[in-house]
Design a protein around this nucleic acid. Sequence first.
DNA 1: AAAATCATGGCAACCGTTTGCCAAACTTTG
DNA 2: CAAAGTTTGGCAAACGGTTGCCATGATTTT
Lengths: 347, 347
Amino acid sequence: MDRGNRPARLRPVTITDIATRTGVAPSTVSRALNNPGRVSAATRERVAAAARELNYVPNSQARALSSGRTGTIALLVSDVTNPFYFGLIRGTQQQLKAGGYAQLLIDTEDSGEHEAEMLHKMRQSLDGAILAAPRLSERPLSRLAGEIPLVVINRHVRGVPRVMIDTPAGIGQAVEHLVSLGHRDIVYVSGPERSWSNEARWHAMRAAVERHGRRTRRVGPFPPGRRSGSAAADAVLNTGATACVVFNDLLAIGMLTRLRERGVAVPADLSVVGCDDIFGADFCNPPLTTLAAPIEEAGRAAVAMLLARLDQRPARVLRRAVVLPTHLTVRESTGPVPSRAGTVPGP
Amino acid sequence: MDRGNRPARLRPVTITDIATRTGVAPSTVSRALNNPGRVSAATRERVAAAARELNYVPNSQARALSSGRTGTIALLVSDVTNPFYFGLIRGTQQQLKAGGYAQLLIDTEDSGEHEAEMLHKMRQSLDGAILAAPRLSERPLSRLAGEIPLVVINRHVRGVPRVMIDTPAGIGQAVEHLVSLGHRDIVYVSGPERSWSNEARWHAMRAAVERHGRRTRRVGPFPPGRRSGSAAADAVLNTGATACVVFNDLLAIGMLTRLRERGVAVPADLSVVGCDDIFGADFCNPPLTTLAAPIEEAGRAAVAMLLARLDQRPARVLRRAVVLPTHLTVRESTGPVPSRAGTVPGP
DNA sequence: AAAATCATGGCAACCGTTTGCCAAACTTTG
DNA sequence: CAAAGTTTGGCAAACGGTTGCCATGATTTT
């Protein structure tokens, strides 16, 4: 059939091709395409027509080399499989595509060093980066922000623009909810120690409980995965608490599984509140009461902030922070306090 | 504190810097770094030392421009939020990182045209691409494969290397399982019409049921999301079947939710089998019996195939296809056929 | 009508790296 | 010891754009 004349990855069309075809200089072609005000309407139109006919696609490498702009933004997440990031990936992807940027996805494997190293190595290939819940400590993070435009999500670092999901405020709602159901002994199930969000949530929790004249404790820390749910569930049962607020939904879902295994009824014996409202929180068993976070919106906001910064036009007001509200979504993992808080059923 | 002397995004170190420092020509530096056999051990060492001291990071744009290799591989998925792709994203990410490549994630929004267009535009910025379950029709797909090295997942196109997850074979297992439980009337819940996998699964299903001297039907097509689960569940109930095999887990989970709402007990009234074993299939309610697919492995295999192709060394045997087996994972959404297949309970 | 301004297009340098080709120095071989 | 071969390093030309600067001609201002 088609043997012989395979086009063999033909040479791509360049501005020089357009230039010879239209009889102008390559520089004029470049300007006609990117800097429309700089050439006459007539030539601009001729160039555009030629580009269209030849099916011209600019070579982003070459463009990057001379202009310094690569058209690529990286999204760094600590673990691509954590469903929390799905919304982020999607939100940023959408907004980046709308802005004409490509998204480079990087998994930092939960390591601050990885974050720093990757970012440093790629800084010349990127116009900017979005760091989701960075593990990196404050110092190197600000240093990095000097090397390359950065927006961080759920982290507060001086001088680095940020998008915050206000889960701490939501935690107040969660505590009100639990207290109104009669719970007096509520524990916090802690996520990773190095996580900024974890500390913020814990502090919010303590403050909220103290407003009711009570004290709270925390168990953990636990890695924020489903696997850790077993240990977390056992630890909570040992405290004798009637309710818990969990660092994130992933961990909470893991706990739910374990509690079911152990024959502990949720919410009859123990109420569980998660954070983030990830994929699965609504169809696990029982469906999880959780703090719904506008994750996709956070992604979009982060991109918007970053692109605003890359935009040359000087007279722009640049927001230094965006705070997004969360709200409690009540499902079936929370309920009235058990009539007699007794001992825990055996396994 | 640190006012005044902010380094203002300082000029990155180039091979020329290394060259002047070691007293050799830039070309020698380039060779010392990338083509070690080409220079003497002594200079190579001196260059390496200088590079280390100066903390040199090669500019990938410049390298790409002259060498044609970009060090970037794209992964195209039809919808980043479909949990099926999480494993793929992770698997490819791992293997690419190991091979020193960066991963560009592209959402094609379920459109074949998007696929073609994006790929065409980016072909100069990519060394290759992995297409997950492409929607594109066969013709343009082979044409694209001529423009840029490609590996497709779950799709059979002549001349394009592929990784196949052998769900059709697994469907046989699923049917055996259901038949052994007494089911005689099993329907297939169809995914998108344009999906190659969907057709493959349907054919396998029909063949498997016919081996038992029975016939089967299908309902649908449905978009492969949870939202479609309601319609799918209702359609299945109308058929009066006692069991169904569903195009994918996402749809199956959606059905489970709907069935629960309608008071249909799973598996007492209806058995449900999904495909893929995505995140959530194990903790939904009831946990889903499904065809577990080695998705991460598929991602790794696809990367391995692609990189083998990019590798220059000629005397390599290039696999044209990899087929990965699936197996039935029995959980709690399948059970014995109802004693009297009666009418469906009302809503 | 001369001077100043403006719009438009071309020239050429540059971005940082790779690579074909050549030259020098050194090593082997006959 | 000369001829041939082998290392090793340098020169310079790409790769495909962008952009500062200049020249030309047209337009406006005084």
